[in-house]
Design a binder for these strands. Structure first.
Lengths: 208, 208
DNA sequence: GTCGTAATGTACCATTTGGTAAAAAACAGG
DNA sequence: CCTGTTTTTTACCAAATGGTACATTACGAC
C-alpha cells in the first residue's frame, strides 16, 4: 500500500502554536493568516490536518484542558474541599500569569461575546465552563458527606462562587493584573470559604 | 442662514439601539449592517452622525456608563464601605439579569480578547475597568479613616476583590446564570468582607 | 524505474468587512 | 420661485475573510 508524501510539520507542535494564537486573540479575532503564520504551514495543510478553523479551535481547546489547564481536573483529587479550592486557585494563578503563554484563560476569553459565525464556539465554551463548575459541585457534595464541609453548606453555591472568582481573575489577568495581585485576590476570596482559615478549625467537626 | 435637510432619526434613540447590539455581540462581533439595521438608518447617516464604528462604540460606552451601569458611580455615595459593596453587587445583578437588555456587561465583554483592529477598544475598556476599580479603592481608603473598615484592611486588595467578583458575575451572566444564582454568589462573596455579616459585629481580624 | 498516495505551494473563489463618492431630496432664508 | 445647506439614498471601493482547485512534489510498494 503506497504511503504518500510524508507530512513536513509536527502536528502537535502546530496545534500548540494555534492554541497560543487563539488564546491571545480569541476564536473570532484570529484569522487564517494568523494561524498559518504561527503554525508555519500553509492553508491547505491546515485544512487537511485539522478540518477547518472551528475544528482546529476545538482540538486546541482539548489540548488546553489537558495541558495548561490540567489543574482544573487535578484539583478535584485533593482530599478536602479546602485543599481542592486552594489547588484550583493556585493553579489558576499559575496559568493566568505564566509568562510562557498568553495572559488570561481560553475558556473565558475564547469567545465571550461574538457575532453569529462564532456562536457555536461561544456555546461550546459555555458548556465546558458549566461542566467544570458541575464537577466541583459534585466534589463539594461529597465533601459534605465526608464531613470536611459543614452540613448546611450549599455545594452548588460554593461551586458557583469559586467559578465566579476564577473567571473574574481571568478578566483581571487579561487586564494586566500581576501574580501578586491575583494571590491577594485569592486570599480574600478564601475568607468566604465555610471552614474558615486553616489556623482556626473551630467551625464544626474537623475529622471525617 | 440656511439650515439644511432635517435629520429623520432620533440620535439618542439610534445610539441606544447601537449600544444594545455592541452589548450583545461585542465591538468586533458587530458589523456595520448589524448596526444600521438595528438603528434604522443607512451607513452614510451613521458616519455623518457618529464618525465611525470606533467613535460610535465609545459614545455607546459613555451612554452605558451613565445609564444602565450608573450604579457603579452611585454605589460610591453610600455612607459605609459595606453599603457601597452591597449597592454595587445589587446594582450589578440588576444590570446583568435585566431582561430588557442583553445579558452580561459591556465593559467586560465589549472586547475582552480580539484581533489588532479592536485593540484600541480593548485597551479603552481595560482602562475604564481600572478607573472604576481605582475609584472603589479610594472610597475604601476613606472608609478606613472613617473607621467603617478595620484599620489593617488593604483598600487595594478589597477593591480588586470586588472587581474580580463583579467581572466574574458578568461572565456567569453571559453563560446563563439566573438572578437567584447571582444573588447567592453575592451572599457568599460578602462573607469575605472585613466587617463580617450584619448580625455579627464581632470581627476577628486575621490578616493573612 | 513506475505507480499510487498524500502532502505541499500557488493561485483562486465568493462573501463580507469598514468606509465613501456623488447625486437626489428636504428644509430655511431671500 | 431660487439658493445654500445638510441629510438621505444608491452605488461603489479596496481589503480581508474563510475555504478550495489544481498542479506539483515526495515518499513507499512493486
Amino acid at each position: 500500500m503506497p504511503t504518500g508524501r510524508p507530512r513536513e510539520f509536527d502536528v502537535t507542535k502546530a496545534l500548540d502554536r494555534a492554541l497560543k494564537v487563539f488564546w491571545r486573540k480569541g476564536y473570532a479575532g484570529t484569522s487564517l493568516p494568523d494561524l498559518t503564520k504561527a503554525m508555519g504551514i500553509n492553508r491547505p495543510s491546515l485544512y487537511a490536518a485539522f478540518g477547518n478553523k472551528e475544528e482546529l479551535f476545538l482540538r486546541a481547546l482539548d489540548r488546553y484542558s489537558e495541558g495548561p489547564a490540567a489543574h482544573i481536573r487535578e484539583a478535584l483529587q485533593e482530599p478536602t474541599a479546602r485543599a481542592v479550592v486552594e489547588h484550583l486557585l493556585r493553579g489558576t494563578i499559575d496559568l493566568l500569569t505564566n509568562p510562557r503563554h498568553p495572559r488570561g484563560c481560553l475558556l473565558v476569553q475564547g469567545a465571550l461575546s461574538c457575532g453569529e459565525t462564532a456562536d457555536t464556539i461561544r456555546r461550546e465554551l459555555i458548556s465546558r465552563r458549566a461542566a467544570a463548575e458541575n464537577a466541583f459541585r459534585q466534589r463539594f457534595e461529597r465533601a459534605i458527606t465526608d464531613g470536611d464541609l459543614p452540613a448546611d453548606s450549599d455545594s452548588a453555591d460554593l461551586a458557583r462562587y469559586i467559578a465566579t472568582v476564577v473567571q473574574g481573575m481571568a478578566v483581571q489577568a487579561t487586564s494586566g493584573a500581576t501574580r501578586d495581585e491575583l494571590e491577594r485576590v485569592a486570599v480574600t476570596a478564601l475568607r468566604a470559604w465555610p471552614a474558615g482559615e486553616p489556623a482556626s478549625p473551630k467551625r464544626t467537626a474537623a475529622g471525617k
